[in-house]
Write a protein that binds this DNA or RNA. Structure first.
Length: 262
DNA sequence: ATGGCTGGTAGAACCAGA
């Protein structure tokens, strides 16, 4: 029986934290790692660090300063692609088809700015539109598909430390949760994080750099792995690697890992 | 309950994250 271990991690600058990525790859040995917020143009991507660890297959889509995504893999790709949604080429997607036929899509959904009102904050509108565009994109999928990444939405009450307070905070507002829910239901995506760690258990993937929030465990579940219905049953193990949040000069997000058997 | 850190681009204070 074949087994594939896939991981996703918002790294918040892959150049600054290339060694941390290497530490994670060595310690947890995923076959594939999807990164978000690489913050580096493709020509400057530190690929050799990961090639040296056996991750010789790399699909990257980055730009200067902001956003940026990458897929590092020990398994060969049949094909790779990068999508631009909403008329903006802002490096929020990269995908790869693995030899097993698994379609892997890595997303960095817009954060959405400060004010949850698209009439005064265009970034919030862009976020909702991006998720709407994902919904239409998913209509065409007809293969076993895994979507991973930083969705920048904590959908369930128990995905934040204080549901009532955060209803007004971008990442947990009702309209974001509704929009993400429409996307989820349209394809029947299975939220693997909650398959393996059911509500209402604590299951955070992000903690602010601000010490007060971190020390009080005021986290949110923003990073996700969603499987299409035909793939979800193959998921056999799942975890968040909270340890990395305590590493020196860490990302504010932690890796999420799922193992599949076929 | 809170944005009071952090990174990148600059080459000093911004913007952005969420």
């Amino acid at each position: 029986m074949a087994s594939i271990k896939l991981a996703t991690w918002n790294i918040n600058s892959v150049r600054l934290r290339a060694d941390l990525v290497g530490q994670f790859l060595t310690a947890y040995s995923p076959d594939v790692l999807c990164l978000q917020e690489t913050k580096v143009p493709d020509a400057l991507f530190p690929g050799e660090v990961f090639t040296g660890l056996g991750y010789v297959h790399q699909a990257i889509n980055g730009q200067k300063g902001y956003h940026g995504v990458a897929i590092l893999s020990r398994l060969p790709f049949r094909k790779t692609a990068a999508l631009s949604f909403c008329g903006k080429d802002d490096t929020r997607h990269v995908s790869a088809v693995l030899e097993a036929g698994l379609q892997l899509h890595n997303f960095y959904v817009p954060a959405g700015g400060d004010t949850p009102d698209r009439s005064v904050n265009p970034k919030f509108g862009q976020k909702l539109d991006f998720i709407g565009r994902m919904t239409r994109w998913a209509e065409k999928l007809d293969r076993p598909t895994l979507i991973v990444g930083d969705f920048n939405v904590a959908p369930l009450d128990c995905d934040v430390y204080d549901h009532k307070a955060l209803l007004k905070v971008v990442s947990h507002t009702p309209v974001e949760i509704e929009t993400l829910g429409l996307f989820k239901d349209a394809h029947g995506w299975v939220d693997l994080g909650r398959e393996f760690i059911p509500a209402p258990d604590r299951n955070y993937t992000w903690w602010s750099y601000r010490a007060f929030w971190r020390d009080k465990d005021q986290g949110r579940r923003l990073d996700h792995m969603w499987a299409s219905p035909d793939l979800a049953g193959h998921a056999k193990g799942h975890r968040c690697v909270e340890e990395t949040r305590r590493w020196e000069q860490p990302s504010d997000h932690v890796p999420v890992v799922t193992e599949f058997t076929f």
